[in-house]
């Protein structure tokens, strides 16, 4: 009998432990890679007991996966349209919150991208230009719009190669397989890429605004940590990291 009691005691202790140490999994657009890593590290510093896992990938894929019941508690999309659609379909447990208006840049570790403009892409010496796949990657759509509205699409299109998401697009350029790419400002100003090459900011009037937003998913409706993290993202410490990586909301300034 005492054995049974002891066992029950151990079990209840374990359960209590499990209830205290909370865990969330975040699905985040690939452009958030560096900023989100830093915010999560900061958050863990302030909340040592909690586990926060992040999966990076393309927003369109996460959108489908959340619909199919993927175990993500928060979803940060590079295009606010995806979380809006999920919320409309009853897959969200929060309102859709904006976290940034994304910007695109020309980036290259081999050419002096900071002295280039979109017109430079017609240079015959440039034979490969990487953009994200406009068919499903939000940054790719904006890249296509910018090239079209500056009347360069037809000239530049034969040189384009398409990354599966914005991180792969950057990687095509980083490895030198494409000489230049149109990537997210947030990636170009990350320490990792900034030390390899400069960038030129593509004027925002050349493309539709790239509104980005996030939701707490339906499956995390009763997850207190998910809500805390969602609120944390709106707070000053997180916003400072976000703006430093180029994720500014209207009224905010990019940089320190």
């Amino acid at each position: 009998m005492t054995h049974v009691k002891r066992l029950l005691l151990v079990c209840s202790l374990l359960l209590a432990e499990a209830a205290q140490a909370e865990k969330i999994t975040i699905a985040a657009a690939a452009d958030l890679k560096f900023a989100m890593d830093e915010i999560v590290a900061q958050f863990k510093g302030a909340n040592p007991g909690d586990t926060v896992d992040v999966t990076y990938g393309s927003s369109g894929k996460f959108h489908t996966q959340v619909q199919q019941g993927a175990p993500y508690d928060l979803f940060f999309s590079a295009d606010i349209g995806f979380p809006r659609e999920l919320a409309a379909g009853g897959f969200a447990a929060s309102e859709v919150r904006p976290y940034a208006v994304g910007r695109i840049v020309l980036w290259s570790p081999r050419l002096t991208a900071s002295k280039m403009t979109l017109n430079s892409l017609t240079d015959p010496k440039i034979t490969r230009i990487a953009i994200a796949n406009p068919k499903h990657a939000p940054y790719g759509k904006r890249a296509e719009e910018a090239l079209r509205s500056s009347g360069l699409w037809d000239k530049v299109e034969p040189k384009l190669v398409y990354g599966e998401n914005i991180a792969q697009t950057a990687q095509f350029v980083q490895t030198g397989n494409a000489q230049v790419g149109i990537i997210a400002l947030s990636l170009a100003i990350s320490p990792e890429l900034a030390k390899q090459g400069g960038y030129w900011l593509i004027p925002e009037n050349l493309h539709q605004p790239l509104e980005q937003g996030y939701i707490v998913t339906k499956q995390a409706a009763n997850n207190a940590l998910a809500r805390r993290f969602a609120d944390y993202m709106g707070g000053t410490p997180a916003r400072q990291v976000m703006t430093r990586y180029g994720f500014a909301l209207p009224g905010e300034k990019v940089g320190k």
Binding site: G60, T64, Y162
Partner: peptide, 24 residues
């Protein structure tokens, strides 16, 4: 990883299916 998704050059059927799924 090495194709760059170019129609008629590197966009094979398996990648085309992946693109369809990604684009819903």
């Amino acid at each position: 990883m090495i194709g760059g998704n170019l129609p008629g050059i590197t966009r094979v059927a398996s990648v085309q299916i992946y693109d369809h799924v990604e684009a819903l």
